[in-house]
Amino acid sequence: MSWLNRVARKIPFIAKRESPDNLWHKCPACQQMIFAKEYEANLSVCPKCEHHGRIGPDARFDQLFDNGVFTPLPIPQVREDPLKFRDSKRYTDRIKEARAKTGEQDAFLNARGTIEGFRAVVGVQDFAFMGGSMGLAVGAAFVAGVQAAIADKCPYIVFTAAGGARMQEGILSLMQMPKTTVAIAQLREAGLPYIVVMTDPTTGGVTASYAMLGDIQISEPGALIGFAGQRVIEQTIREKLPEGFQRAEYLLEHGMLDMVVKRHDLRAELARLIDYLCPGTGKKAA
């Protein structure tokens, strides 16, 4: 045995320290590594480049409602896998995987609460659940949110995030477009505002329906908003599209949005809009 091995054997063994996998967050925009707790404390906005990260319903409700207090609305029951669809996997298996990943029943959740004292019903679409795709469950949840807002006589605020209609439900997913449009008409007949906040990304049939029908159209900075993808459009019209096409700031400049609001300012801005749009029905809770 060499002297080096003899010395090495006398050195006490120290177990390798392991760090949690979620200790750091890498910003997809600037590639900076950010301490996860700092990132969450900053509302999932990069402190370096202000890239607005994608967040789910629970985080959105916590950030938006007063003191993070809210009441989730019951989730409507719909028929699952109505077409018995299967591609590389069964549709039912994909739903189970999405539920295990997110802890949610489907891609759209509603809750009621107060925003700076003003009553509101808020619906949030989660891109983490099968790309936020719009199917029977999403359409039913949207209608339930509208009905709750009418019953509460308060605004309905929707945060959109989707890749479009859910292909596994075929024509039934496309029928959610007129279904949600009719629900919005009912909300307007009741004299209540419908406010849309588009987040990254909002595309496909969602953009072609309830995402673009708001009384007020808002977006978070840098959000991708459109119907078809940029490459598909360029191949169709055979022209090069301008820089930043389909981003929130470009749409604001061309009149498709009313405002682009940073996440830190969004709560106060929504409260101001509620106070202006429905001072009678959306007044501060007693």
Rank of each mutant, 00 (worst) to 15 (best):
A268E: 14
K48Y: 14
I274W: 00
K153Q: 15
K153F: 00
T236H: 10
K179E: 11
E80I: 10
P12A: 10
L213I: 01
P193H: 01
V45N: 00
S219P: 03
P279Q: 06
E239R: 13
C278M: 13
P242F: 06
G135K: 04
G139L: 09
E234L: 06
K96M: 06
A148Y: 08
V69D: 11
M130Q: 12
K26M: 09
I11T: 11
L277D: 05
C46P: 04
E116M: 09
L172E: 03
Q186H: 09
I55S: 03
P242Q: 02
E18P: 00
K48T: 10
A286L: 11
G117C: 09
L270Y: 07
E40C: 02
M175A: 11
G117Y: 04
A285S: 10
A190D: 06
E18Q: 14
R99W: 00
G280D: 11
R231K: 15
F127P: 00
A285L: 14
R112V: 09
G164Y: 02
E80H: 07
D66G: 06
P76V: 04
G117E: 10
C27H: 04
I75H: 13
F35Q: 13
D21A: 15
E249N: 02
S209E: 01
P201I: 08
P12F: 07
H25T: 06
F129H: 08
A149M: 02
A8C: 04
C154F: 02
Y91L: 07
Y250T: 03
L4H: 04
K284G: 09
A223D: 04
M259D: 12
G191Q: 05
E220I: 13
D200Q: 03
K284D: 02
D87N: 14
A271T: 05
L83C: 13
R231D: 05
N22P: 02
F85Y: 12
L277R: 05
V196E: 02
L273C: 07
I95W: 02
Y156V: 02
I11E: 12
A149R: 08
M175E: 09
P72E: 12
K37Q: 12
A100R: 15
I115C: 08
V197T: 05
G132T: 05
P221F: 06
G103Q: 14
L270Q: 04
A98C: 08
K179Q: 11
D265N: 08
M256R: 12
K37C: 01
P178H: 05
K262G: 12
H51E: 12
C49Y: 07
R6G: 02
A183V: 05
D93A: 09
N42Q: 11
I55H: 07
Q63M: 14
R238I: 01
E40N: 03
D152G: 13
I237H: 07
L4N: 03
T281D: 10
A144G: 08
E189V: 09
I233T: 12
V182R: 07
